[in-house]
């Protein structure tokens, strides 16, 4: 089974040289720590920056330079700043190559719910709806089950949707899945996790085709 960093490491294997990538808050943010050696990746922050760098060293924080999580950050050489309308032109216009975000639920048809729990204080969707409606390539990084132990990979989402038919790939602590026409296709198992365990934790339709390899982390 993987921890949060393990999930991030596995997702980092999806990166390709030259990619522009938008990382959501939570586990997705950790992906930036595992960029393969020698690969040139540019991170987009939807509040208005390409080439987002690490947090500043103490004393060099700048109130005018934050990321979409409102954290102080830095910009790397070759980066650029722009306004919110231009930022979402990059996103809607499919110029961002990969979006990684968290989810509360994903359906076997690729629907995603990650912004609202009825009865709880709703904070808003931020840029999530624009991102999932537009990205060519969306990977969901999440825990396989919720705090109550219920599967988050479902036949149909029960929570209000963020987007429909958009998720391409899911990485959880147990496995990697592709969303296909026929359901969640099991691609890889996490180290030490059996197909049976994955099946048990997956409520939506699971497709197991032949031997399922263990991930190489």
């Amino acid at each position: 089974m993987l921890d949060k960093n393990g999930i991030a490491k596995r997702i980092a294997q999806e990166l390709k040289d030259g990619y522009y990538v938008n990382l959501g808050i939570g586990i997705p943010t950790l992906v930036a720590n595992y960029i393969p050696e020698g690969m040139d990746i540019t991170f987009q922050s939807e509040n208005g920056m390409l080439g987002m760098g690490p947090f500043p060293v103490e004393g060099e924080e700048d109130a005018d330079l934050i990321n979409a999580g409102k954290q102080t950050v830095t910009i790397l050489e070759g980066g650029s700043y722009f306004d919110s309308a231009t930022s979402f032109a990059m996103i809607r216009g499919e110029h961002v190559d990969l979006t990684v975000l968290g989810a509360m639920e994903v359906s076997e048809t690729g629907d995603i719910a990650n912004w609202k729990i009825p009865g709880k204080m709703v904070k808003g969707m931020g840029g999530a709806m624009d991102l999932v409606a537009s990205a060519k390539n969306i990977i969901v990084a999440m825990q396989h089950v919720n705090k109550a132990g219920e599967s988050k990979l479902l036949p149909k989402c029960s929570l209000p949707l963020t987007g429909v038919g958009c998720v391409k790939r899911i990485v959880t602590e147990l496995a990697v899945f592709d969303v296909t026409e026929n359901g969640f296709k099991l691609i890889e198992r996490a180290p030490g996790v059996s197909v049976e365990e994955i099946q048990k934790a997956t409520e939506g339709k699971l497709i197991v085709d032949g031997e399922i390899p263990e991930m190489k982390i």
Binding site: P54, V57, E58, D64, I66, G69, Q71, T72
Partner: peptide
């Protein structure tokens, strides 16, 4: 005042 909402830093 330019208040910072989430001051995040890395070690020097």
């Amino acid at each position: 005042e330019k208040r910072i909402e989430q001051r995040t830093v890395r070690p020097k």
